[in-house]
Design a protein around this nucleic acid. Structure first.
Length: 227
DNA sequence: CTACCGATTGACT
DNA sequence: GTCAATCGGTAGA
């Protein structure tokens, strides 16, 4: 068996994130989603990598949230149960969010960047010949590389097929990392809120990379229902 | 129905 | 650093 197929087996065997992971405070999920895997199966091949950057959009008091003014046709998925995808379109691009918190509470985490690991050749082809650096450092780029579009709006991410999230296999796990917190990128409302989370020092994070705060991965708050 | 605009990207100064 | 492309969602007439 080749190293490549062993690697793909590693991705296929990684523990799928279940509903409980998403059924939590959206800021908690945005921080804890770092170093998880985003995986996609395209024509029988695994594509994806490690999530290195994400943003939280709050259900309350966040005018940058698409659901700030209530339910619309576009944002309907955000009102659904946690662990489903909210995919929307902007400027000819698609952006992938994971829905968090209990059903009816419209909060979500935007996946802004991944570190490419599996199916790099396929992702490069989907992005038309750009290099590995810059392949998936932005929410639109992630969706281009992984062929994620509106068909996946409302997709259940806990099924472990087509499009899902999984734990980082222990073989790949770094001992510890620092989480940087900053203002969100590109928003025109609530610019000052510190709701962007990224792995400090990782080269696959989009710019800017200035950190307003730093938190150790081992110091994250526990789940709301942990005791 | 029309008008406005963006949780982006890529090209350019 | 700046800026245009480009089009579906949204709000308003």
């Amino acid at each position: 068996m080749s190293a490549l197929s062993r690697s793909e087996d590693m991705a296929r065997c990684a523990a799928v994130l279940g509903r409980r992971f998403y059924d939590d405070d959206v800021r908690n999920v945005a921080a804890r989603i770092l170093c998880k895997l985003l995986l996609r199966e395209i024509d029988g091949s695994i594509c994806g990598g490690v999530i290195v950057e994400a943003e939280a959009y709050l259900a309350v008091g966040d005018p940058a949230n698409h659901a700030y003014r209530g339910l619309t046709e576009r944002n309907r998925s955000m009102f659904g149960s946690p662990g489903h995808a909210y995919v929307y379109r902007i400027h000819q691009q698609h952006c992938l969010n994971v829905v968090t918190e209990p059903e009816g509470i419209p909060s979500a985490v935007l996946i802004r960047a991944i570190q490419p690991i599996w199916g790099v050749e396929i992702m490069l082809a989907n992005r038309k010949g750009k290099g590995i650096v810059g392949l998936t450092d932005g929410p639109g780029k992630v969706c281009q590389a992984l062929k994620i579009d509106l068909r996946y709006d409302g997709w259940d991410l806990t099924l472990g097929k087509e499009l899902w999230l999984a734990e980082l296999p222990s073989e790949l796990k770094p001992p510890e990392f620092e989480i940087a917190i900053s203002e969100r990128v590109g928003v025109t409302a609530a610019k000052e809120m510190l709701l962007r989370f990224f792995i400090f020092g990782n080269e696959f994070v989009s710019k800017p990379r200035h950190a307003r705060k730093l938190v150790r991965s081992t110091d994250l708050p526990s789940r709301h229902d942990d005791t």
